[in-house]
Write a protein that binds this DNA or RNA. Structure first.
Lengths: 210, 210
DNA sequence: AAAATAATTAATCAAATGATTAAAACATTT
DNA sequence: AAATGTTTTAATCATTTGATTAATTATTTT
């Protein structure tokens, strides 16, 4: 390596600068609409360096999306598998964690959704999503709650769809919601903050009905 | 016109063939990832014809997305503005109509979401989305229901977000849900059919809590 | 400090891609 | 059927874009 990295914590190496720029551009525009030149410019480097470090646009993209996906799933997996928290508490934690997480990186949900569409099998195969959820403490607790009559709908997928949907959908539909509501980013975030409290209440009410 | 259109109902004209092909390819891959050659091939025409009829890729795309958006919004607008139906009935109708609609064209929600991201202001400005919702019978009825204490949460945007989210999100996250649940398209559609019945029940339960 | 290695750049390439052109095929009008 | 107008095609252009190369600069090793 040419430059000694004086600072270990703030990795200012060229490789990291390129990745950071790539992350931003890919997240905002998606793979197809991204130009390697945009990444190079944003990173403040010569275009050739991008290929020097990462070989190709596709390889760089693979790294970015895998990191983004892992971060996104891991967050969820941690909570779903904690044996120390009740089902109710899990819902609160997921709502709160995810809304905070996504407010920091609002383009991530739409990025993931639109890129998975162009690569249905490939991406998800690499992450053990199915095992992770099916063997989770969450599913076990859900089964118990159904048995105890506290939850009517027996399919845990319906439960998860609702929970994740109530959290993520507003971010995905944000431009539309801003247009409909005639609101600005600050107000939108305010509404999402409210939803940290509301979603657990709503979920509880839903699951007893149906 | 070269060919006389023998059939008025099935418009098999070249222009319509190109639009139909464009619709399919754009919906599936989005603007940036679509090649005009793909459209031409799918339509069974020479590439030059695409430009002969539509001038450019961008102009053809504008037509497609406006038609797609209008169809999507109009469906909703009709129901939201019907003075003859109760709030409760409106929820049932929207859930049922939209789920049927999207099962027929499952790529539309993701298409709309990812294209609006690349064109935040422009697209929505052309449709009077805000006026349409804010002056709707639905908002009026919602206000009444809040006043009467039948609905706790006073913001109609929260109500709409939840309703639309519960309907649309599963389609948008379909690849992920299929991976998590280990299910096939048929089973997925089955689950969505169940949701026609469940969503109105859930919404009712939610709106009394919170 | 000389030699060797690594990082960076400017210039260039080759393929992909949106668009145009000029000619051919087809249809309509006179 | 000749003349005119419209639709379609094959060939080609010009630009964009991902990638490479050969030379230059910086860093490390000996």
């Amino acid at each position: 390596m040419a430059k000694t990295r004086e600072t270990k914590h703030i990795d200012t190496s060229t490789e990291e600068k390129i990745k950071e720029a790539a992350r931003m551009v890919f997240h905002k525009k998606g793979y197809a609409a991204t130009r390697t030149r945009d990444i190079a410019e944003k990173a403040g480097i010569n275009l050739a360096l991008l290929n020097y470090y990462f070989r190709s646009k596709a390889k760089l993209f693979d790294i970015i999306i895998m990191e983004t996906l892992s971060a996104f799933v891991q967050n969820m997996a941690m909570v779903l598998n904690d044996p120390a928290t009740s089902l109710e508490k899990k819902v609160e934690l997921i709502a709160s964690n995810y809304i905070d997480f996504i407010i920091k990186e609002p383009e991530v949900p739409t990025f993931i959704i639109s890129e998975i569409r162009n690569n249905p099998g490939g991406l998800l195969e690499k992450l053990p999503v199915r095992e992770l959820v099916q063997n989770s403490m969450f599913v076990k607790q859900h089964r118990e709650a159904v048995k105890a009559g506290e939850i009517t709908e027996p399919n845990p997928l319906q439960f998860l769809m609702n929970l994740i949907g109530l959290i993520i959908f507003p971010f995905v539909a944000k431009p539309l919601l801003k247009a409909v509501g005639g609101i600005k980013d600050t107000q939108f975030n305010g509404i999402m903050q409210e939803r940290k409290r509301l979603i657990p209440l709503w979920i509880k009410a839903m699951m007893k009905s149906g």
